[in-house]
């Protein structure tokens, strides 16, 4: 019983997070300005991170935790670099 509830909930959550990632991709493609695309990328990273945590619950494995941590670090650094780039047009001053 509780297994069925968990399976349905994780599938539902995964579906919603995948749709959320698709919407973020649409925002990246649509723009219109560069800052919109960077914001879309940041949202995509966070959504992917949450999707991996949800997958970890479905499979019951801790392996996904490390993947989501790496995605988080990469997402943070890349968004920061891109935002800095938008500010002055250069990353290193």
């Amino acid at each position: 019983m509780s297994g069925t509830i968990l399976l349905v909930a994780t599938l539902l959550a995964q579906g919603m997070l995948v749709i959320a990632m698709l919407l973020a991709v649409l925002r990246i493609l649509r723009g219109p300005r560069a800052q919109d695309r960077v914001l879309g990328l940041d949202t995509l990273y966070v959504n992917a991170m949450l999707l991996l945590i949800t997958m970890g619950i479905r499979t019951g494995s801790i392996f996904f935790f490390e993947a989501s941590l790496v995605i988080g670090v990469l997402g943070f650094v890349s968004t920061l670099a891109l935002a800095k780039f938008l500010m002055r047009g250069e990353v290193i001053e």
Binding site: V8, A9, L12, M16, A20, L50
Partner: peptide
Amino acid sequence: ELPLWAAIVVAFFLVLGAGLTLIGSIGLL
């Protein structure tokens, strides 16, 4: 196997979190 109440709590938090994230992304679009 998890007890039933725990499964319900976990399921609730999962759907709540994913739902809020989805609404946020809808807003982004």
